[in-house]
Every structure is written in C-alpha cells, then in structure tokens.
Design a protein around this nucleic acid. Sequence first.
DNA 1: ATAATAGTGTCTGTTAGACATTATGCA
DNA 2: TGCATAATGTCTAACAGACACTATTAT
Lengths: 225, 225
Amino acid sequence: MICSVDVALLTVHQGALAVALLEREHEPFAGALALPGGFIHPEEDQDTQAAAVRILRTKAGIVSPYLEQLATFSGPGRDPRGWSLAVAYYALVPPEVVAGSGCGRVVLRGASEARGLPFDHGQILAAALARVQSKSSYSSLPVYLCGETFTLPQLQAVYEVVLGEPINKVSFRRKMEELGLLEPLEGQLLAGKAHRPAQLYRLRPQFRRRLALTDRGLNPGGGGR
Amino acid sequence: MICSVDVALLTVHQGALAVALLEREHEPFAGALALPGGFIHPEEDQDTQAAAVRILRTKAGIVSPYLEQLATFSGPGRDPRGWSLAVAYYALVPPEVVAGSGCGRVVLRGASEARGLPFDHGQILAAALARVQSKSSYSSLPVYLCGETFTLPQLQAVYEVVLGEPINKVSFRRKMEELGLLEPLEGQLLAGKAHRPAQLYRLRPQFRRRLALTDRGLNPGGGGR
DNA sequence: ATAATAGTGTCTGTTAGACATTATGCA
DNA sequence: TGCATAATGTCTAACAGACACTATTAT
C-alpha cells in the first residue's frame, strides 16, 4: 500500500490566499504542479508530522511556523499506481518565508483558482481552505500568516482575506484586546504613508506556538464552522 | 508498514459517556480490552471510512448512524511490532443500538475512566472525547446519541452529559427551535412518571445525515473548541 | 490646510441566561 | 389536592455592529 504525506502550504499573496505548488519530478504526473508531498520514511520520520516537516524542508526549503494535520485521504482511485493513503497537513506561513525559501522552485497559485491538480490534491486543498476559514473565525490562526511584527489594520486585512468578508473594525479590535495575545512595540510603523502611522504589535511569547480561542467567535454572523 | 483503522465508539450509559471496547483475540495485547480496530484491506475497502464501517460491523456487530474521521496516529512506538499508522474514527450510537448488537462481545466502559488501553488507544479516546465535546457545543451532534424519538428534556440531558455542565433550559429550547431540526410527534411521552408528560420529537428527514450548526454556539460561556 | 488612515467613544438592537409562572399528568 | 416535571413568558445584563468623532502623519 502506498503511504504518503501531502502538505497544503498557504500564504497571503497579492491580497488573496495562495497555495504553494511544486513541479513534480517523477511519474505519475511528472511535470505537473502539485502539492508538496512524498512517501513516509519509517526509518527517518518519528511520525507523519515529522514526515511533513521533512518534506517541506527538503522539497520546498520552507520551515513553517504552523503545521497541523488535516485529514487522511485514501482509496483505489486517487493514485494511478493503485490503492493509496495520504495523510494531509496544512501549513500557514508569512509571505516573506515563502519568498526567502532558498530554492526558488515554489510556485504560488491563488488558492481558490488552482484547478486541475493531480491526485486528489484539489480535494485536499479545498479541505485545507475550509479548515483555515473555519478555524480563523474563532481563533488567532491568521497571525501565522503575518510576519514577526504587524499592525492591527494589517492583521485585520489578513483575517478579511481568509474569511472572505469584511470585519467590523471596532469589534475586531475589541476581540484582539480581550484575547490578550498581542503586545505593542514602542516602535511605530510610519513609512511613506501619508496618514497617521499604526502601532506595531507582536505575538506574546506564550502564544507563539499556541492558538488563542474566542468563546463566541469574531463575526458571529459570518464564517461557518 | 502497519496500516490500520481504529474506532472510538461512544454512547451514553448510566448517565455518562461510555466507550465500546473489545477483548483482543490476537497478539499483541491478546486478551486486553481495546478499541475496535483492524488492518485496512485494500481489495475490500473503498477507503478507510469503509474499513471503519466493516470493522464495526464484523467485530462489534454495530452499524453506526454517525461515523467521522478523527485523526491519524503514527510512529515507531505505538505498536510493539514496529512503525505503524492508524487512521482513527469516532462513532456515536444510541444505547439501544449497542445493547442490540447481536454478538454480546462489546464491553462498555466510562469514557473518562477507561485507562490502561493498549497501543495509543488512550490518546485516541481522549481526542475523540475532545472532538465530540467541542463539536457538540455548536452543533446537533448529540442527537446521534439519542434513539429515533426523544423528548427535549432527554436531549438536553444528553447534551449535558457530553458537555459536562448544565445548560440553561430556556436557551437550549430556543436554540433547538431556531435550528429547526426537530419535528414534534403527536404522540406524547407519558409512562409512569408522576408529572406532566413531555412532547416527543424526531429528527427532520433532511437532518438525518447532516448536522445543524449554530453560529454562536449554545452555551457560549462553556464548552471550548 | 487637506487627504487618508489609525484609533476611540457611544448608542442601539440582539441575545443568552435568570427568574417566575402556567400546564399537566399521576399518586 | 399535592407533587413533580414540562413548557412558556418576561426581564436584564452583556455584547456585536453601526456611526461618529478625534488623532496623526505626509504632501
């Protein structure tokens, strides 16, 4: 039985969610763009999560600040070589990390425009998008799409890209405040913008590897679970 | 590589969540109580979900009204035979279905008391409980723990067992009303109770295989995600 | 001064939960 | 008639969203 790991690596690119694709080197589907993936190496990988980390590092040159198991896909039809099983993960990375990925083999495609992916990578991508959207509606997940420091308007823009709808500014800031996961930096963002500069924030250390959850979700009307 | 499927089958028993265990027939851990599980049969199983259905049917004699993939567990240490991978599912069934399971080999244990399970079945069970609790806090998931018909007080009691805390009666009924998933039956529950009988309900057909979701969750203060 | 965005104060409609009241069957 | 639980009405505090207003920079 074929056992592999596939990773849907998402980032923000040109104001939209984008997925990282790699050109396949081997059959099947050699030359096609596909999600980074590869076989599990039991001698080398402590578990499938470690396999996902290894695949991202060796094939895409990326170390992701957030990597979570998504679901396992299986069946006789998803790989032309026969019955196969793939443990799918999704990763969120800031655009800078993708840009500075060493080897420049990563191709970014609009996450909702990417079509015709080999295997069942279209399904995996769709599941990843649904999961990210769902989880973002009640957690701090989108901060992993931002760099080290960011302003609240920037963070809100990322939330809006992920959720696909505008968020009330006052409510958003209230939520972020009560979550208590951000700390302001005394330096400010000014740059050539002809308007009031925004306060820079960074994640509090205790939230760097942990999500903050809201009880009733930001934007209750909107993003479904 | 060892590839298997394990199922955490949950039901309500003696006023608490209970998990179905089976005595293992073969090594490793022969004779021990464990989650129903077995190898994937690529020739026979369309996918891992089908494998889970087959294992529940053949080993426990149970067909579950709700079966969902939970997560995949893997690593060199979880099975003494070597590096293994298990796709875990969880199932919810009404007590009657477990009781009438044909073969009486199923053993029920309090879900939070079950300890010392072989492999990493303790972890799988913990993940299943967390998932059920989380999902129940914003969906109609617990109706799968009830039989064909039930009263609102009965359903609320099941929610309270799952969530582990009392729910406001008025809020609960409002939520159920606005979800619109129940339809009253003209017959009533009376029985030997020395008080006013409760209205019987059943799931509307369009919700028999689909969850109803609330935007902001019942009991916002409580059950976390 | 003006433009443009950052950030805050305040009002209002909605909703969850508390409490109280009525309803209904059985002993 | 009394008891126990079902079912519903109503009040209140909390909160999300709308709107308006102030703050601060560059041109």
